[in-house]
């Protein structure tokens, strides 16, 4: 599996990270090195093996579906780069 410039651009787009055009060939090469390393996994016989879901056998705990927390709008917004009138502010989303 070899990653070309177009694939690298697509992955960057999916990850929502801006990568300049001239940086794409080097990025594709790095991906290829790492994926080449990962490629070894293809030689393992995994027939009938369950993919791991949880490293310790456990049943996830359940709790009553009730409100346990809340009413801290100020705290939630405290670290926002742009908060207005009690909301997070972002650039226009809908034209």
């Amino acid at each position: 599996m070899s990653i070309d410039k177009q694939t690298a651009a697509r992955v960057a787009k999916l990850a929502r990270i801006k990568v300049e055009d001239d940086a794409l060939p080097a990025l594709a090469e790095e991906f290829n090195n790492i994926l080449g390393f990962i490629e070894q996994l293809q030689e393992v016989d995994v027939d009938g093996v369950e993919p791991m879901v949880s490293v310790t056998p456990m049943r996830l705990k359940r709790r009553v579906d009730g409100v346990t927390d809340g009413n801290q709008q100020d705290k939630v917004l405290k670290n926002a780069p742009d908060a207005r009138e009690g909301f997070f502010a972002v650039p226009k989303v809908v034209e």
Binding site: I3, V11, L14, F31, L35, I38, L41, Q42, V44, V46, V49, E50, P51, M52, V53, V55
Partner: peptide
């Protein structure tokens, strides 16, 4: 990339099996 459609089984699921 390893989670993207078409590669999820070949990479991510296989890795989870090897982890087992």
């Amino acid at each position: 990339y390893v989670l993207s459609a078409g590669f999820y089984d070949a990479y991510y699921n296989r890795a989870r099996k090897v982890r087992t």
